[in-house]
Write a protein that binds this DNA or RNA. Structure first.
Lengths: 180, 180, 180, 180
DNA sequence: TATGAATGAGCGTTCATTCAT
DNA sequence: TATGAATGAACGCTCATTCAT
């Protein structure tokens, strides 16, 4: 996870895991198959958490707020999962397919939350859900854009707050409280 | 551009360009040097456009709106530039340095626009400019996350409009026009 | 050994040894590392023999005579070791270092024999030991200068005798036995 | 001369000479042909000097003494000529042939000097001229064995004297002057 | 089942040589 | 005649994958 797909050889992985290279190939058909399994494992917790949020009895904004907390926690803090997925542009189509399906399941669930929000009149119905989803992931993963901005001088909790603020209200200055 | 750094060999590039491998090396010192030149060429137009916007006599929101148009045009439509930059996590430090400097120059200029907007009372002073910048790039590049979402059913112009809408006002439903 | 460092590719070596290129690299970190190992192996016997001669209880001339026998046997007859070392002027510094150390250990021991000889009044104290050493190696290795003189019409044993003769007494005709 | 055959590319040579690579190939058929010409040029002075010495009206020892001066001057001081020849073990046979012929001409002339010396009773007739020649070159070139012994603490003039001393009288201590 | 030596295609790169201008 | 861009075979080296033990 910390090195990227191309910069990690099977030999290194085997060494780190403490088995021989051959053993690795008895459990995983190929380097790419190994990656898929790794991702699935990582995704699992996130999927479970997403599921739980989806079934909570709170309004859509609250759900999305929790969803952002969760995504930030799992992706940004725990593992640069999406980042690696993004890097792997050129992995075999087959792999992508597997990961895509996993990803899309979660994505669909979040889409439902957004749709709920629209139905509740909380979210802007003029915005296609697809776009809202894309922007959500773009915002979350942007935090990982580390190579171009190492020293972000913001605390983690504040950052998540800021991301929610922008996602929900944009960068525009809030309207002044009405006088009186 | 369409294949990623690691999955494109110099031999392939040479073949596609229609020259011998050696010829490539007469023009570019290394694979990485080739990449830098490619990026610089791509970046140049974008930089010029950014410069022009920075010097326009319009308010910050208008500038940012134009900036989003420009970024979308150059990056999303013309070339998946940022996407590849993101992929290249593990390219040699030196290369990164060169590209980073190019990128950071543009980034800094957009940062100034955002600061102007805060000074003008248009943008939310509670949000760190750094975060606003990260989110901006996250939103723009998110559109390029093609592998997970090929068939976005939205027209290009509408999409840009939606991105601006979210970036400026978030996904929350707009307040109803005051009855009158 | 018979081809020189630069004219022997790893592929060729692999082929000759009957393994794949990759296999070679599993045993030797690099082409240079392979060379070092080869040299060390060759040198070992020579070093042992030198050691033994150094500890014999004979006078310095006898030691040097045995030393010349040994050098001729190992270098000229067995392998053109020094010759290749000389060729490799421009190998990486690090490699040279390793080989140099091996070589210098043996060289130092021979230097001690020469110094002993001087102390015993056998060798010419006017000649710096360093120079005596250089000339010794120059003489031995000269025999290997095969490309310019393939068909030396002298038997091996005679040749060694001649070399000793010159090294000890020069090319000048011996003084006639004093009459009477 | 200062870099060795393999570490000098035609491009570098062209650049240093101030012409284009193509121009080089109009004057020299190949890299090896270029080397031959270079060597011939270097050799020329040495050959002339050798010729002159051969025709002097002095005894053979004096001739050989001058010859050693000359060889040392041309080879050791002026250019590491022999050293490079030795390095080039694996150059094409054709090249060797040309250089060999040049070299052998000079070698033959020195051989004659040695034979003269034997006829004059000065040199040891028990030593084959071939061997005396080999040792001569071995001694001279030994001085160039720079990589294994950089800091020879002997002045140039002294060194030449020592080499002559050994070549003529060996390393054995001179007999004490007979008591008067 | 676990191993790790063996494999070999493929990579980025070099450079002697050619040839159209 | 001089040029230097183009060539492409060959190099040292890597690493995902295989397979005999």
């Amino acid at each position: 996870m910390e090195r990227g797909y191309y910069d990690t050889s099977m030999g290194e992985i085997a060494q780190r895991v403490g088995v021989a290279k051959g053993t690795l190939y008895q459990h995983f058909e190929s380097k790419e198959a190994l990656m898929i399994v790794l991702f699935k494992r990582e995704f699992h917790d996130l999927q479970v958490a997403t599921e739980r949020i989806a079934q909570m009895s709170v309004d859509a904004q609250e759900k999305m707020s929790l969803m952002i907390d969760t995504l930030c926690y799992h992706l940004a803090e725990k593992h640069p999962l999406f980042f690696i997925i993004r890097n792997a542009t050129d992995l075999e189509a087959e792999i992508h397919q597997e990961i895509k399906e996993y990803f899309n399941a979660m994505r669909a669930q979040i889409g439902l939350m957004l749709d709920e929000g629209k139905a509740e009149g909380i979210f802007n119905v003029a915005l296609p859900t697809e776009v809202m989803l894309e922007v959500l992931f773009g915002i979350i993963v942007s935090r990982l854009f580390k190579n171009f901005h190492q020293g972000l001088q913001v605390k983690y909790e504040d950052l998540v707050g800021h991301l929610k603020c922008i996602y929900f209200h944009g960068i525009t200055a809030p309207a002044p409280a009405p006088a009186g």
